[in-house]
């Protein structure tokens, strides 16, 4: 008999009381909500070490990115343009597309990656990214991450977030809440363990 059959048989033999699947609707209904989602999201993102900036009318997103990371030379972008109201702003500050490289390791040394955020979660400052390029390393390997997020796509909590997301065609998605961090040496908090040292979410 295969291990699969052995294990399933052992489960059948040993399972005792069968509990019903709980109804989560009460909890989901009761869960935290915020009156001002935009300011809550900005506040929590700051607490987890990131920063949120709101793109104002007539402000250019490229200027904003260049002002935030003036030293950046290698800038990858997974998006060509952003839409704000009726206007379209092309992303002109990037120097390459992440799928232009031959190997994922060639992305090492990327200063800034500009990526598309799908959903922002107010209770924890996390943004949901769905893999939309072949080299998903770009979300982690660059020194700084700039996430473009539509301010209308903010949700209160994780229950609401999970109702709206999917992992898309590539079959990979991730919530990112601020920069990579560790406290493994004497519990001192250090940003930039392996992933981005700095995360900026631009709300459009």
């Amino acid at each position: 008999m295969s291990s699969r059959e052995d294990i399933l048989q052992s489960i059948r033999r040993n399972t005792r009381v069968r509990y019903e699947k709980p109804d989560l609707s009460g909890l989901e209904h009761e869960a935290l909500t915020y009156e001002d989602k935009l300011s809550k999201f900005c506040e929590i993102l700051k607490q987890v070490g990131g920063q949120a900036v709101i793109l104002k009318d007539k402000e250019n997103v490229n200027d904003m990115i260049k002002a935030a990371y003036p030293e950046a030379k290698r800038i990858a972008s997974t998006i060509k343009e952003i839409k704000t109201g009726n206007t379209i702003q092309p992303i002109t500050c990037s120097t390459f597309h992440p799928d232009d490289v031959e190997n994922s390791g060639d992305l090492d040394g990327t200063d800034v990656a500009i990526v598309d955020g799908r959903i922002g979660v107010c209770e924890n400052g996390a943004v949901w990214l769905t893999q939309d390029v072949e080299q998903r390393a770009v979300y982690f390997i660059s020194e700084a991450l700039v996430i473009i997020l539509d301010r209308n796509n903010l949700v209160n909590n994780m229950h609401e977030a999970y109702k709206q997301i999917d992992t898309g065609e590539y079959g990979y998605g991730v919530f990112i809440s601020g920069p990579s961090k560790t406290a493994d040496i004497e519990q001192a908090l250090v940003m930039g363990a392996h992933g981005a040292r700095s995360v900026t979410v631009i709300l459009i």
Binding site: E28, V48, E123, N157, H159, T167, G173, S177
Partner: peptide, 24 residues
């Protein structure tokens, strides 16, 4: 939705871990 709200808050006092990755 339930577990990701509890895990990091309980373990390290963070509202969520920095990365919650879904490999499909």
């Amino acid at each position: 939705g339930v577990f990701t709200r509890l895990l990091a808050r309980s373990g390290t006092g963070q509202p969520i871990t920095t990365y919650t990755s879904h490999y499909r």
